[in-house]
Design a protein around this nucleic acid. Structure first.
Lengths: 175, 175
DNA sequence: CCAGATTTATTGCGTGCGCAAGTACCCGCC
DNA sequence: GGCGGGTACTTGCGCACGCAATAAATCTGG
Protein backbone atom coordinates (compact mmCIF):
# COMPACT_ATOMS: atom_id res chain seq x y z
CA UNK A 1 0.00 0.00 0.00
CA UNK A 2 3.02 2.29 0.07
CA UNK A 3 2.43 4.84 -2.70
CA UNK A 4 4.52 3.74 -5.67
CA UNK A 5 6.84 6.71 -5.54
CA UNK A 6 7.42 7.82 -9.11
CA UNK A 7 10.46 9.92 -9.81
CA UNK A 8 9.48 13.49 -10.71
CA UNK A 9 10.51 14.66 -14.15
CA UNK A 10 13.95 16.23 -14.20
CA UNK A 11 14.76 19.11 -16.46
CA UNK A 12 15.75 17.04 -19.47
CA UNK A 13 12.67 14.87 -19.24
CA UNK A 14 10.48 17.90 -18.87
CA UNK A 15 12.04 19.46 -21.91
CA UNK A 16 11.56 16.30 -23.97
CA UNK A 17 7.91 16.38 -22.97
CA UNK A 18 7.30 20.01 -23.78
CA UNK A 19 9.22 19.68 -27.01
CA UNK A 20 6.84 16.98 -28.21
CA UNK A 21 3.73 18.93 -27.33
CA UNK A 22 4.81 22.27 -28.69
CA UNK A 23 6.61 21.06 -31.78
CA UNK A 24 3.62 19.01 -32.81
CA UNK A 25 1.25 21.87 -32.23
CA UNK A 26 3.32 24.36 -34.20
CA UNK A 27 4.04 22.11 -37.14
CA UNK A 28 0.49 20.87 -37.48
CA UNK A 29 -1.06 24.31 -37.18
CA UNK A 30 1.11 25.81 -39.88
CA UNK A 31 0.74 22.92 -42.22
CA UNK A 32 -2.99 22.78 -41.80
CA UNK A 33 -3.39 26.51 -42.26
CA UNK A 34 -1.52 26.39 -45.57
CA UNK A 35 -3.39 23.36 -46.80
CA UNK A 36 -6.69 24.94 -45.89
CA UNK A 37 -5.86 28.29 -47.44
CA UNK A 38 -4.46 26.96 -50.70
CA UNK A 39 -6.65 23.92 -51.28
CA UNK A 40 -9.52 23.93 -48.82
CA UNK A 41 -8.40 20.63 -47.31
CA UNK A 42 -7.95 19.87 -43.65
CA UNK A 43 -4.94 17.79 -42.72
CA UNK A 44 -7.01 14.67 -41.93
CA UNK A 45 -8.76 15.11 -45.27
CA UNK A 46 -5.44 15.30 -47.07
CA UNK A 47 -4.21 12.22 -45.29
CA UNK A 48 -7.29 10.26 -46.20
CA UNK A 49 -6.85 11.14 -49.87
CA UNK A 50 -3.13 10.41 -49.72
CA UNK A 51 -3.57 7.00 -48.14
CA UNK A 52 -6.27 6.09 -50.62
CA UNK A 53 -4.05 7.11 -53.52
CA UNK A 54 -1.32 4.74 -52.37
CA UNK A 55 -3.62 1.80 -51.73
CA UNK A 56 -4.19 -0.94 -54.33
CA UNK A 57 -7.20 0.06 -56.41
CA UNK A 58 -7.16 3.44 -54.66
CA UNK A 59 -9.56 1.97 -52.13
CA UNK A 60 -9.39 1.16 -48.44
CA UNK A 61 -11.78 -0.09 -45.79
CA UNK A 62 -13.09 2.53 -43.42
CA UNK A 63 -11.48 0.82 -40.47
CA UNK A 64 -8.05 0.70 -42.09
CA UNK A 65 -8.34 4.31 -43.09
CA UNK A 66 -9.18 5.28 -39.52
CA UNK A 67 -5.93 3.75 -38.30
CA UNK A 68 -3.78 5.52 -40.90
CA UNK A 69 -5.45 8.86 -40.61
CA UNK A 70 -5.43 9.69 -36.92
CA UNK A 71 -9.15 9.61 -36.39
CA UNK A 72 -11.82 7.68 -34.52
CA UNK A 73 -14.16 5.52 -36.60
CA UNK A 74 -16.96 8.02 -36.18
CA UNK A 75 -14.70 10.88 -37.12
CA UNK A 76 -13.73 9.03 -40.24
CA UNK A 77 -17.33 8.34 -41.19
CA UNK A 78 -18.11 12.04 -41.08
CA UNK A 79 -14.97 13.01 -42.91
CA UNK A 80 -15.74 10.55 -45.70
CA UNK A 81 -19.29 11.92 -45.77
CA UNK A 82 -17.88 15.36 -46.33
CA UNK A 83 -15.36 14.28 -48.93
CA UNK A 84 -18.14 12.35 -50.60
CA UNK A 85 -20.33 15.48 -50.81
CA UNK A 86 -17.43 17.24 -52.46
CA UNK A 87 -17.05 14.36 -54.89
CA UNK A 88 -13.51 13.47 -53.86
CA UNK A 89 -14.22 9.95 -52.67
CA UNK A 90 -17.07 7.52 -53.07
CA UNK A 91 -18.30 4.66 -50.95
CA UNK A 92 -18.41 1.11 -52.17
CA UNK A 93 -19.99 -1.68 -50.18
CA UNK A 94 -18.01 -4.89 -50.17
CA UNK A 95 -19.82 -7.67 -51.99
CA UNK A 96 -18.27 -10.42 -49.90
CA UNK A 97 -19.07 -8.85 -46.55
CA UNK A 98 -21.85 -6.31 -46.54
CA UNK A 99 -20.65 -4.80 -43.29
CA UNK A 100 -17.48 -3.39 -44.72
CA UNK A 101 -17.39 -0.24 -46.76
CA UNK A 102 -14.58 0.80 -49.04
CA UNK A 103 -13.72 4.42 -49.53
CA UNK A 104 -12.60 4.91 -53.13
CA UNK A 105 -10.68 7.84 -54.56
CA UNK A 106 -12.55 9.48 -57.45
CA UNK A 107 -10.76 11.05 -60.42
CA UNK A 108 -11.66 14.44 -58.98
CA UNK A 109 -10.22 13.37 -55.67
CA UNK A 110 -7.02 12.34 -57.39
CA UNK A 111 -6.84 15.72 -59.09
CA UNK A 112 -7.33 17.63 -55.86
CA UNK A 113 -4.76 15.47 -54.12
CA UNK A 114 -2.22 16.00 -56.87
CA UNK A 115 -2.82 19.73 -56.61
CA UNK A 116 -2.42 19.73 -52.84
CA UNK A 117 0.60 17.45 -52.75
CA UNK A 118 3.23 20.15 -53.36
CA UNK A 119 1.77 22.30 -50.60
CA UNK A 120 1.81 19.44 -48.16
CA UNK A 121 5.30 18.37 -49.15
CA UNK A 122 6.66 21.88 -48.91
CA UNK A 123 5.01 22.39 -45.54
CA UNK A 124 6.38 19.19 -44.07
CA UNK A 125 9.86 20.09 -45.28
CA UNK A 126 9.78 23.73 -44.38
CA UNK A 127 8.27 23.38 -40.93
CA UNK A 128 9.75 20.08 -39.89
CA UNK A 129 12.11 17.89 -41.89
CA UNK A 130 14.41 20.57 -43.23
CA UNK A 131 14.85 21.96 -39.71
CA UNK A 132 16.47 18.70 -38.61
CA UNK A 133 19.91 17.33 -39.38
CA UNK A 134 20.02 13.84 -40.85
CA UNK A 135 20.96 12.44 -37.49
CA UNK A 136 18.22 14.28 -35.68
CA UNK A 137 15.70 13.11 -38.21
CA UNK A 138 16.72 9.48 -37.79
CA UNK A 139 16.86 9.80 -34.02
CA UNK A 140 13.36 11.22 -33.89
CA UNK A 141 12.02 8.60 -36.26
CA UNK A 142 13.64 5.90 -34.17
CA UNK A 143 12.58 7.19 -30.76
CA UNK A 144 9.02 8.18 -31.60
CA UNK A 145 8.56 5.21 -33.89
CA UNK A 146 9.43 2.99 -30.95
CA UNK A 147 6.72 4.66 -28.91
CA UNK A 148 4.15 4.03 -31.59
CA UNK A 149 5.08 0.37 -31.75
CA UNK A 150 5.03 -0.01 -28.02
CA UNK A 151 1.64 1.63 -27.86
CA UNK A 152 0.26 -0.75 -30.47
CA UNK A 153 1.48 -3.75 -28.54
CA UNK A 154 -0.12 -2.43 -25.38
CA UNK A 155 -3.41 -2.05 -27.19
CA UNK A 156 -3.29 -5.62 -28.36
CA UNK A 157 -2.35 -6.73 -24.87
CA UNK A 158 -5.27 -4.79 -23.45
CA UNK A 159 -7.66 -6.50 -25.84
CA UNK A 160 -6.23 -9.88 -24.87
CA UNK A 161 -6.62 -9.00 -21.20
CA UNK A 162 -10.26 -8.11 -21.76
CA UNK A 163 -10.83 -11.51 -23.31
CA UNK A 164 -9.31 -13.20 -20.30
CA UNK A 165 -11.50 -11.19 -18.00
CA UNK A 166 -14.48 -12.20 -20.08
CA UNK A 167 -13.45 -15.83 -19.81
CA UNK A 168 -12.98 -15.50 -16.08
CA UNK A 169 -16.50 -14.11 -15.83
CA UNK A 170 -17.77 -17.06 -17.80
CA UNK A 171 -16.38 -19.27 -15.07
CA UNK A 172 -17.46 -17.07 -12.18
CA UNK A 173 -21.02 -16.58 -13.36
CA UNK A 174 -22.01 -19.54 -15.47
CA UNK A 175 -25.49 -17.97 -15.41
CA UNK B 1 8.64 30.89 -62.75
CA UNK B 2 9.93 27.31 -62.98
CA UNK B 3 8.12 25.36 -60.28
CA UNK B 4 10.43 25.21 -57.29
CA UNK B 5 10.95 21.48 -57.46
CA UNK B 6 10.88 20.19 -53.92
CA UNK B 7 12.46 16.83 -53.22
CA UNK B 8 9.82 14.23 -52.34
CA UNK B 9 10.09 12.70 -48.90
CA UNK B 10 12.29 9.62 -48.83
CA UNK B 11 11.53 6.72 -46.58
CA UNK B 12 13.39 8.03 -43.56
CA UNK B 13 11.83 11.44 -43.80
CA UNK B 14 8.42 9.91 -44.19
CA UNK B 15 8.96 7.80 -41.15
CA UNK B 16 10.11 10.77 -39.08
CA UNK B 17 6.93 12.54 -40.09
CA UNK B 18 4.57 9.71 -39.31
CA UNK B 19 6.37 9.02 -36.06
CA UNK B 20 5.67 12.56 -34.87
CA UNK B 21 2.00 12.43 -35.77
CA UNK B 22 1.26 9.00 -34.41
CA UNK B 23 3.41 9.14 -31.30
CA UNK B 24 1.85 12.43 -30.30
CA UNK B 25 -1.63 11.15 -30.90
CA UNK B 26 -1.11 7.95 -28.92
CA UNK B 27 0.64 9.53 -25.97
CA UNK B 28 -1.82 12.39 -25.63
CA UNK B 29 -4.87 10.19 -25.98
CA UNK B 30 -3.77 7.81 -23.26
CA UNK B 31 -2.65 10.49 -20.89
CA UNK B 32 -5.81 12.48 -21.35
CA UNK B 33 -8.03 9.44 -20.90
CA UNK B 34 -6.37 8.62 -17.57
CA UNK B 35 -6.49 12.19 -16.35
CA UNK B 36 -10.13 12.47 -17.29
CA UNK B 37 -11.09 9.16 -15.74
CA UNK B 38 -9.25 9.61 -12.47
CA UNK B 39 -9.63 13.33 -11.89
CA UNK B 40 -12.09 14.77 -14.38
CA UNK B 41 -9.46 17.06 -15.88
CA UNK B 42 -8.66 17.50 -19.54
CA UNK B 43 -5.00 17.78 -20.44
CA UNK B 44 -5.22 21.51 -21.24
CA UNK B 45 -6.99 22.03 -17.91
CA UNK B 46 -4.22 20.20 -16.08
CA UNK B 47 -1.60 22.25 -17.85
CA UNK B 48 -3.29 25.49 -16.94
CA UNK B 49 -3.38 24.51 -13.27
CA UNK B 50 0.20 23.27 -13.39
CA UNK B 51 1.53 26.45 -14.96
CA UNK B 52 -0.36 28.59 -12.49
CA UNK B 53 1.03 26.59 -9.59
CA UNK B 54 4.58 27.26 -10.71
CA UNK B 55 4.08 30.96 -11.34
CA UNK B 56 4.94 33.59 -8.76
CA UNK B 57 1.81 34.25 -6.70
CA UNK B 58 0.16 31.31 -8.46
CA UNK B 59 -1.16 33.79 -10.99
CA UNK B 60 -0.57 34.40 -14.68
CA UNK B 61 -1.99 36.68 -17.34
CA UNK B 62 -4.41 35.09 -19.75
CA UNK B 63 -2.14 35.76 -22.67
CA UNK B 64 0.88 34.14 -21.03
CA UNK B 65 -1.19 31.15 -20.07
CA UNK B 66 -2.37 30.74 -23.64
CA UNK B 67 1.21 30.44 -24.82
CA UNK B 68 2.17 27.83 -22.23
CA UNK B 69 -0.94 25.77 -22.54
CA UNK B 70 -1.32 25.03 -26.22
CA UNK B 71 -4.50 26.96 -26.80
CA UNK B 72 -5.81 29.97 -28.69
CA UNK B 73 -6.77 33.01 -26.62
CA UNK B 74 -10.45 32.27 -27.07
CA UNK B 75 -9.95 28.66 -26.11
CA UNK B 76 -8.20 29.78 -22.97
CA UNK B 77 -10.97 32.21 -22.03
CA UNK B 78 -13.50 29.41 -22.19
CA UNK B 79 -11.30 26.97 -20.33
CA UNK B 80 -10.75 29.48 -17.53
CA UNK B 81 -14.52 30.07 -17.49
CA UNK B 82 -15.03 26.39 -16.95
CA UNK B 83 -12.32 26.04 -14.31
CA UNK B 84 -13.79 29.11 -12.63
CA UNK B 85 -17.24 27.50 -12.47
CA UNK B 86 -15.63 24.51 -10.80
CA UNK B 87 -13.88 26.81 -8.37
CA UNK B 88 -10.35 25.81 -9.37
CA UNK B 89 -9.19 29.22 -10.54
CA UNK B 90 -10.46 32.75 -10.13
CA UNK B 91 -10.05 35.86 -12.24
CA UNK B 92 -8.37 38.98 -11.01
CA UNK B 93 -8.26 42.20 -12.98
CA UNK B 94 -4.93 43.94 -12.98
CA UNK B 95 -5.08 47.26 -11.14
CA UNK B 96 -2.31 48.84 -13.21
CA UNK B 97 -3.76 47.89 -16.59
CA UNK B 98 -7.46 47.15 -16.61
CA UNK B 99 -7.20 45.26 -19.88
CA UNK B 100 -5.23 42.41 -18.44
CA UNK B 101 -6.75 39.77 -16.25
CA UNK B 102 -4.87 37.32 -14.09
CA UNK B 103 -5.99 33.78 -13.63
CA UNK B 104 -5.12 32.72 -10.10
CA UNK B 105 -5.08 29.27 -8.59
CA UNK B 106 -7.57 28.80 -5.73
CA UNK B 107 -6.83 26.54 -2.75
CA UNK B 108 -9.31 24.06 -4.20
CA UNK B 109 -7.48 24.26 -7.51
CA UNK B 110 -4.20 23.56 -5.76
CA UNK B 111 -5.76 20.53 -4.07
CA UNK B 112 -7.10 19.14 -7.32
CA UNK B 113 -3.79 19.71 -9.02
CA UNK B 114 -1.88 17.97 -6.25
CA UNK B 115 -4.26 15.04 -6.52
CA UNK B 116 -3.88 14.84 -10.28
CA UNK B 117 -0.13 15.30 -10.35
CA UNK B 118 0.81 11.65 -9.73
CA UNK B 119 -1.51 10.53 -12.51
CA UNK B 120 -0.03 12.98 -14.94
CA UNK B 121 3.51 12.14 -13.93
CA UNK B 122 2.95 8.43 -14.17
CA UNK B 123 1.27 8.83 -17.55
CA UNK B 124 4.07 10.90 -19.02
CA UNK B 125 6.63 8.39 -17.80
CA UNK B 126 4.74 5.27 -18.69
CA UNK B 127 3.63 6.33 -22.15
CA UNK B 128 6.57 8.44 -23.17
CA UNK B 129 9.69 9.15 -21.15
CA UNK B 130 10.34 5.67 -19.82
CA UNK B 131 10.04 4.26 -23.33
CA UNK B 132 13.07 6.26 -24.42
CA UNK B 133 16.72 5.72 -23.63
CA UNK B 134 18.56 8.68 -22.15
CA UNK B 135 20.11 9.41 -25.51
CA UNK B 136 16.84 9.18 -27.33
CA UNK B 137 15.22 11.48 -24.81
CA UNK B 138 17.92 14.10 -25.23
CA UNK B 139 17.92 13.74 -28.99
CA UNK B 140 14.17 14.26 -29.15
CA UNK B 141 14.32 17.24 -26.78
CA UNK B 142 17.07 18.74 -28.86
CA UNK B 143 15.53 18.14 -32.27
CA UNK B 144 11.95 19.08 -31.46
CA UNK B 145 13.03 21.88 -29.16
CA UNK B 146 14.91 23.36 -32.09
CA UNK B 147 11.74 23.26 -34.14
CA UNK B 148 9.81 25.12 -31.48
CA UNK B 149 12.47 27.81 -31.31
CA UNK B 150 12.63 28.16 -35.05
CA UNK B 151 8.88 28.44 -35.23
CA UNK B 152 8.87 31.19 -32.62
CA UNK B 153 11.45 33.15 -34.54
CA UNK B 154 9.43 32.81 -37.70
CA UNK B 155 6.38 34.14 -35.92
CA UNK B 156 8.28 37.18 -34.77
CA UNK B 157 9.68 37.64 -38.25
CA UNK B 158 6.18 37.41 -39.70
CA UNK B 159 4.96 40.11 -37.36
CA UNK B 160 7.90 42.31 -38.34
CA UNK B 161 7.15 41.68 -42.00
CA UNK B 162 3.55 42.75 -41.48
CA UNK B 163 4.77 45.99 -39.98
CA UNK B 164 6.92 46.64 -43.00
CA UNK B 165 4.02 45.93 -45.29
CA UNK B 166 1.91 48.32 -43.26
CA UNK B 167 4.62 50.95 -43.56
CA UNK B 168 4.86 50.34 -47.29
CA UNK B 169 1.13 50.86 -47.59
CA UNK B 170 1.45 54.08 -45.68
CA UNK B 171 3.78 55.25 -48.39
CA UNK B 172 1.78 53.82 -51.28
CA UNK B 173 -1.57 55.17 -50.17
CA UNK B 174 -0.94 58.26 -48.11
CA UNK B 175 -4.74 58.63 -48.11
C1' DC C 1 -5.61 66.73 -24.36
C1' DC C 2 -7.91 64.13 -27.64
C1' DA C 3 -8.54 61.07 -32.06
C1' DG C 4 -6.87 57.11 -33.94
C1' DA C 5 -4.07 52.99 -33.69
C1' DT C 6 -2.92 49.07 -30.76
C1' DT C 7 -3.20 45.71 -27.22
C1' DT C 8 -5.95 42.41 -24.19
C1' DA C 9 -9.55 39.71 -23.39
C1' DT C 10 -14.16 38.10 -24.63
C1' DT C 11 -18.18 36.57 -27.51
C1' DG C 12 -20.75 34.80 -31.97
C1' DC C 13 -20.56 31.37 -34.92
C1' DG C 14 -19.50 27.36 -37.19
C1' DT C 15 -17.11 23.05 -37.32
C1' DG C 16 -14.67 18.87 -35.99
C1' DC C 17 -14.60 15.07 -33.35
C1' DG C 18 -14.95 11.40 -29.59
C1' DC C 19 -17.94 8.46 -26.89
C1' DA C 20 -21.73 5.59 -26.46
C1' DA C 21 -25.79 3.73 -28.43
C1' DG C 22 -27.82 1.94 -32.53
C1' DT C 23 -28.08 -0.79 -36.95
C1' DA C 24 -26.86 -4.15 -40.21
C1' DC C 25 -24.46 -7.97 -40.95
C1' DC C 26 -21.55 -12.36 -40.38
C1' DC C 27 -20.41 -16.59 -37.97
C1' DG C 28 -20.50 -20.65 -34.91
C1' DC C 29 -23.10 -23.65 -32.13
C1' DC C 30 -27.08 -26.17 -30.64
C1' DG D 1 -31.89 -23.19 -39.53
C1' DG D 2 -32.06 -19.85 -36.35
C1' DC D 3 -30.17 -17.64 -32.30
C1' DG D 4 -26.56 -15.60 -29.39
C1' DG D 5 -22.26 -13.22 -29.76
C1' DG D 6 -19.02 -10.58 -32.26
C1' DT D 7 -17.70 -7.10 -35.99
C1' DA D 8 -18.06 -2.87 -39.09
C1' DC D 9 -19.89 1.14 -39.72
C1' DT D 10 -23.15 4.99 -38.61
C1' DT D 11 -25.79 8.29 -35.80
C1' DG D 12 -27.20 11.08 -31.53
C1' DC D 13 -25.31 13.98 -28.59
C1' DG D 14 -22.55 17.16 -26.55
C1' DC D 15 -18.37 19.61 -25.98
C1' DA D 16 -14.02 21.85 -27.20
C1' DC D 17 -11.92 25.00 -29.97
C1' DG D 18 -10.32 28.32 -33.75
C1' DC D 19 -11.40 32.43 -36.44
C1' DA D 20 -13.34 36.78 -36.95
C1' DA D 21 -15.76 40.51 -34.97
C1' DT D 22 -16.32 43.17 -30.72
C1' DA D 23 -15.50 45.74 -26.32
C1' DA D 24 -12.72 48.00 -23.30
C1' DA D 25 -8.48 50.13 -22.04
C1' DT D 26 -4.03 52.09 -23.12
C1' DC D 27 -0.71 54.46 -25.85
C1' DT D 28 0.93 57.97 -29.26
C1' DG D 29 1.33 61.91 -32.25
C1' DG D 30 -0.14 66.23 -33.21
Amino acid sequence: MAPPVVQPLDEREMSAWHALIHAHSRVIRRLEAELEAEHGLSLPAYEVLAHLSMAPGERLRMSELAVHAVLSPSGLTRLVDKLGREGLVSRDRCSADARVVYAVLTPLGRTRLDAAYPTHLRGVREHYIDLLSGEQRDAVADALGGIVEHSQKECEAAVAAECEVAEAEMVTEPA
